[in-house]
Design a protein around this nucleic acid. Sequence first.
DNA 1: AGCCAGGCTACCG
DNA 2: CGGTAGCATGGC
Length: 197
Amino acid sequence: MDFYEEYKKLLKKHGKQGWWPIIKNNKSQYHPGNYEYPRNESEKFEISIGAILTQNTTWKNAEKALIRLKKNKKLSPKAIINEDIKELIRPAGYYNQKEKKLKIFSKYYLEKKGREPTREELLGLWGIGYETADSILLYAYKKPIFVVDAYTKRIFSLKEDYETIRKKIESNLPSDYRIYQEFHALIVEEGKKSRKK
DNA sequence: AGCCAGGCTACCG
DNA sequence: CGGTAGCATGGC
């Protein structure tokens, strides 16, 4: 399958998606066509936390949790490590597991002292699997790594395992993080719409 | 009123 | 290895 053609078709159909959203004034701010995000460390951290919160959950619910963390000044590695955040992240579901995941990620985040994370390190953390690791690398660190999700498999009828699919798609696209970011977001948009009918 | 969301781990055979 | 229960809230 020519995934670059599929990408262009979806782009024409849905337009630029502006992922990953950043919380501003208590709502998700998308930035279509602007690939400069994230602009600082706290935005990188926010994207990473959002990637964990949205596991098997709608963005709407993850967003609620993110906003509550931010409102209560708890959207920082230290606060997440030291405070009880279960009640704040409750809307995102699985709050017991997700609190643990956020604490583990936050410790790792501090320990690496500003150095960029590696894929192997992220995958080694409890609570971070392929999709979450790759979302962090692609959207917070602009690494040209394609994020495979359930929609990707369904829309293109792909049955292989994660890594096989990822490499197959990557080898059919220009190695440009902006295209990877857009394509994954477009697939989610297409997947959400095509399910409702 | 059940099914599913921008998954992952643990455990089973 | 492949398959699946459990985790939990909120929207439709």
